[in-house]
Structures are given as C-alpha cells and as structure tokens.
C-alpha cells in the first residue's frame, strides 16, 4: 500500500538523517526511528491484511484465510524488544560518554581512553 510505503520511506529518511548528526543525542533518536522503520518494512513487505489477526477462533482447528501473516509479526515482536534493549544500552552509554568526555559531539570523542 502506498501510504505505508511512504511512512516507511519517511521514517528511514528521518532516522538516517539523525544518525548522521554529530550530536550523539540525536543519533540515539535516529536509532529509535530506524527501529520503527525496519519493523514497518518487514510488516508491510509481506502484504497486509486488515482486521484479521492470526488467532484461531474457538471451534476452528486452524487459521482460516484470509488472515494477517503471523510470521513477520513474530519477527517484529522480537525486533521491538531487542531494539528496546539496544536503545536502553545506547542511552546509558551516551550518558556515560557525556559524563566522561563532557561533550555530546561525536567528533570530540576521539579516544577510547576517557
């Protein structure tokens, strides 16, 4: 669907622009947006089905078509949680780096010896 595609594109563009900033704080925000972009990419790439969650209704033995594809959903569920872990770590790391270096400019962090 075109609107979803546009949202994916917009998220990617914004995420990468922010990751390219020298301010490390913006980099983290970009990282968060990148997670959304990738999740939506996986979600929409397989095709979307409206209002038919992959739940087997009581009485049925299996899913009855049409149903939303459960596999990308399982992948994305994992991805959401993992990206939360990565972001949490990145945030704390940025905080540490700022405390140690005294700047949030990526170019000012030139050495690993802080």
């Amino acid at each position: 669907m075109i609107p979803l595609a546009i949202v994916v594109g917009g998220l990617y563009a914004a995420a990468l622009y922010l990751i390219g900033r020298r301010s490390i704080v913006k980099l983290v925000i970009g990282l968060a947006l990148l997670g959304h972009a990738s999740n939506l990419l996986i979600f929409s790439a397989g095709g979307v089905t409206r209002g038919r969650p992959p739940l087997i209704r009581p009485g049925d033995e299996a899913l009855i078509a049409p149903y939303a594809d459960p596999l990308p959903q399982a992948l994305i569920l994992t991805a959401i949680v993992i990206s939360f872990g990565v972001l949490a770590f990145a945030l704390v790391l940025v905080h540490r780096a700022y405390t140690a270096v005294g700047s949030d400019d990526v170019d000012a962090i030139r050495t690993t010896d802080a």
Binding site: L40, F43, R50, P54, Y67, A68, I76
Partner: peptide
C-alpha cells in the same frame, strides 16, 4: 497501524 492490520500482539 499494527492494530489496524491485524497484529494485536505487536
């Protein structure tokens, strides 16, 4: 969006 397209868990 996940809600609209049948992904309540997500």
């Amino acid at each position: 969006i996940f809600v609209f397209f049948g992904a309540p868990d997500l």
